[in-house]
Design a protein around this nucleic acid. Structure first.
Ligand SMILES: [Zn+2]
Length: 823
DNA sequence: GATGCCGGGGA
DNA sequence: TCCCCGGCATC
């Protein structure tokens, strides 16, 4: 299968983690040089195994089985898995373990406690226990993937919950005891198939109702919700009014409940948290406001609902979570209450040791009018059955869409769906291909507005700690539609950049402020300019290209996600902060025990292009633009962070062949090591700007997804140990860069470096000169310039088809340059 | 093979 | 000037 081939290819050159020679946990990195197939009967998986020849840092070549180098791959999987797990997590009331990190800081959203292991566990559970020991690395990768897949399949079920959960995450300050007003969105456009999802854009969503929810521990109880059209509601919750703090509201969730919330306690809590909230909420507010504006229609209704009345009772759907990780989604229109159990936050309990049934039983109760979950469950027993759920695919998908909207990782979601779809069609064995596909699909998925999810937890994570800023705070502004924005946690004033008026679609870059602490202030101060430039990072809003559209389209969407486990100890690898690569273009937040960095490169690219256009400087033609853009991207992203990447020199003609060999440890990439030449980076990242690098979570995994099904092999970058030095590290090879997926357009990780266009790697200046040169040479220039480069966009012919030739613009009819769809 | 369009040409 | 079309560079 073609795909398969692609995958393989992409694997080549990928950085992987190999078991450490010493046997202890620290893995070693290497680059895959070759992949051999071994036909073993891998009964279980039914797939053949691959043996990877990896070039180790020390220059030696070693062969590893898939299992052994799973890390990299694992990453891919991991991501998926994580999400799936997350869902589970959300659902599972039991995750009591909250973990590890003492994260119980105040606001942590619960997700924080998920440790990889945990994830694994859950996953396993979900997966029906395939019988693997999560910890065992020996498990074959395939197997792992498989599992993952399966779990991801489950995802759809969780959509609602997920959405909620995420929402909560976004607003970490809503801790137990908080009340929130939420909105339920409904997807206007029903998305039935993953394919279509791509088409779903933000416009397809509108608020259909609002309600009040109470955050209890990690659970989000929907106390009251109003909506007109229940059936259509997808139940994505959006918090509309962060400030609203109906202390008086009741609805407690305690189990027993009667519905009363201990106001006092609650109050206390709220107060306690208030401070936090305040600061954090700021930006948020913006969003809210906007939202409000947008949703005016509904507002009327809503208003009435507001606070005072707290106990509502209407329920439309209810959902429950099981301890065992199973969750119930009763998404049906019928249920009234939604309960979200994020995890166990003990806080509330502590304060009010209420009754929790053993673990978290999820049973939430609603106050008055809310029937117990169990009751509901009873009502909707069918839902409980997972299998059943599976059957009703349509439903699932539909809902998923909803979730999609809210997740930062919408893409992922989609991919999950895509995957699901694929799987359903044929029992696919989850192998790399599949995984790759999943990832790929991720990138294409439509995101409606997906706000970045931010979990502000008190992770021990290094990132957060740094600087004054505290946890990550992406400062983004709202963008699209004003839907999402993050607020800065600690600062009361919103540190984050004020949201400048962005074009509707534009997104500001999320900056990860001083993560390292080294950096100057939190957000933006460092480089305002940067913001502007890279801001594109998280634009999920742009119009979504059709799925599977060629990556070339400007709108191609790709997303890179990096998860950095907070559990440093566990993960041996060192880590590098992607931020280093391009801090401005990454959106980061913490999730569970991970620091998650996401970047939608396409957006970035788009922005860049836009900018370029505006500047319209040298490059006059499309082609030039294109290149220019590319360059820029590389520059910015890669160079910026990696600086060294640049193949250094500048000779235009000869792009430096990427030396596959030494894997530079990312850490080294850090500023200090930057090669002087990096030139291009426009942004002055002064030393120390790469905060991330310093802090370091232990391992970093990176995923790269790309539109075109070029499956990119996930790369895991273990930076291991050495922060310092430089031993091996030299500079990033182009390859690496690609692995980092900085330049989305470039082919998947081909190790060969992106030969794609040498020029790309060059600095601007160089580029420019090159351009000039070209122009100067008459012959060439003429030829080149003479013919207009074909625009990327579809023209009349394509749009309307030959059948409707009459609909074409005249130019098209005459075979002249299209006037209607100009690029 | 399908497109997008330039350069020619006929009417 | 309006329309077509061959042909070629791209996709
Ligand atoms: Zn046209």
């Amino acid at each position: 299968m073609h795909t398969r081939r692609l995958v393989k290819r992409s694997i080549l050159g990928s950085r992987v983690y190999a078991p450490s020679p010493t046997g202890d946990g620290a893995p070693v990195t290497g680059v895959v040089q070759a992949v051999k197939q071994e036909n073993r009967d891998v009964s279980a998986v039914g797939a053949r195994r691959s043996v990877y020849t990896v070039l180790m840092q020390d220059g030696s070549l070693k062969e590893f089985s898939e299992d052994e180098i799973a890390a990299g791959q694992r990453f891919t999987v991991f991501v998926v898995r994580c999400f799936a797990a997350f869902n589970r997590f959300l659902h599972a009331a039991d995750l009591t373990q909250s973990s590890s990190n003492g994260a119980s800081e105040s606001y942590k959203v619960e997700g924080g406690s998920l440790s990889p292991e945990t994830v694994e566990e859950h996953r396993m559970v979900d997966c029906k226990r395939i019988g693997r020991d999560p910890d065992t690395r020996s498990v074959s990768l395939l197997e792992q993937k498989r599992k993952v897949v399966s779990s991801s399949i489950d995802v759809p079920h969780a959509r609602l919950i997920k959405g909620k959960a995420f929402t909560l995450c976004q607003y970490p300050w809503y801790t137990s005891g908080s009340h929130i007003v939420f909105g339920v969105r409904r997807l206007i456009r029903q998305v039935l198939a993953p394919e279509k999802m791509a088409t779903c854009d933000a416009s397809g969503v509108e608020f259909s109702s609002r309600g009040l929810a109470y955050v209890r521990d990690s659970r989000l109880d929907i106390i009251h919700e109003e909506s007109d059209d229940t059936s259509e509601i997808e139940w994505c919750i959006d918090i509309l009014d962060p400030d609203y703090n109906p202390l008086y509201d009741s609805s407690s969730s305690s189990e027993d409940d009667s519905g009363k919330t201990p106001d006092k306690a609650f109050d206390k809590l709220s107060r306690e948290e208030d401070d936090h909230r305040r600061g954090k909420c700021t930006i948020h507010k913006h969003k809210s406001q906007r939202t409000y504006a947008k949703q005016k229609k509904k507002q009327n209704r809503i208003n009435s609902k507001r606070p005072t009345s707290t106990r509502v009772t209407r329920r439309k759907r209810s959902r429950k979570v099981d301890d065992d990780g199973g969750y119930d989604t009763s998404e049906d229109q019928s249920s009234d209450i939604d309960v979200l159990d994020l995890s166990q936050r003990r806080r509330w309990d502590e304060e009010q040791p209420r009754k929790k049934k053993g673990k978290k039983k999820v049973v939430m109760k609603k106050t008055d009018g809310m029937p117990d979950l169990s009751a509901q469950r009873a009502r909707e027993p069918h839902r409980q059955d997972e299998k059943k759920r599976g059957k009703s695919k349509k439903k699932k998908e539909k809902k998923t869409a909803c979730v999609h909207e809210f997740l930062i990782f919408c893409d992922i979601h989609s991919s999950a769906q895509a995957f699901t779809a694929i799987r359903s069609e044929e029992e696919v064995d989850m192998d790399k291909v599949t995984a790759a596909m999943v990832l790929t699909s991720l990138s294409t998925s439509p995101l409606v507005r997906s706000p970045p999810v931010k979990v502000n937890e008190g992770l021990s994570g290094s990132w957060k700690d740094n600087g004054s800023t505290g946890p990550f705070t992406p400062s983004s502004n709202s963008s699209s539609g004003g839907y999402w924005s993050w607020s800065a946690p600690s600062d009361q004033s919103n540190p984050s950049t004020p949201s400048p008026p962005l074009s509707a679609d534009s997104f500001k870059p999320f900056r990860v402020p001083s993560l390292g602490g080294v950096g100057p202030g939190p957000a933006g101060p460092e480089d305002p300019s940067l913001d502007e430039q890279d801001g594109s990072s998280l634009l999920f809003d742009e119009p979504i290209p059709r799925k599977r559209k060629p990556s070339h389209t400007a709108s191609a969407r790709t997303a890179v996600m990096i998860l950095i486990p907070a559990t440093a100890n566990k993960d041996p690898a060192g880590f590098m902060s992607p931020l280093e690569i391009d801090k401005d273009s990454w959106v980061s937040f913490t999730w569970a025990n991970y620091t998650v960095l996401i970047r939608d490169s396409s957006q970035k690219k788009e922005m860049e292009m836009e900018r370029e256009r505006n500047c319209d400087s040298d490059c006059s033609d499309g082609e030039e633009d294109f290149y220019y853009t590319e360059i820029k991207l590389n520059t910015d992203s890669v160079a910026d962070g990696l600086s060294s990447l640049s193949p250094v020199s500048p000779s235009v003609l000869s792009p430096p062949p990427p030396p596959p060999s030494p894997l530079p440890s990312i850490n080294q990439l850090s500023d200090s090591h930057r090669p002087p030449q990096s030139s291009d980076t426009k942004e002055p990242h002064a030393g120390g700007t790469t905060p991330l690098s310093r802090s370091a979570p232990s391992a970093l995994y990176l995923i790269h997804t790309d539109h075109a099904y070029q499956a990119t092999a996930p790369v895991s970058i273990p930076s291991s140990s050495s922060n310092s030095a430089g031993s091996a590290s030299t500079s990033f090879t182009p390859t690496n860069s690609s692995s980092f997926s900085i330049s989305w357009q470039s082919p998947p990780v081909t190790f060969t470096g992106n030969t794609v266009s040498p020029s790309k790697s060059q600095g601007f200046g160089e580029q420019r000169s090159q351009t000039i040169a070209v122009l100067s040479s008459p012959p060439r220039a003429t030829t080149a310039l003479s013919r207009k480069v074909r625009g990327e966009g579809k023209k009349c012919r394509k749009v309307y088809g030959m059948e409707n030739r009459d609909m074409w613009c005249t130019a098209c009819r005459w075979k002249k340059a299209c006037q209607r769809f100009t690029d």
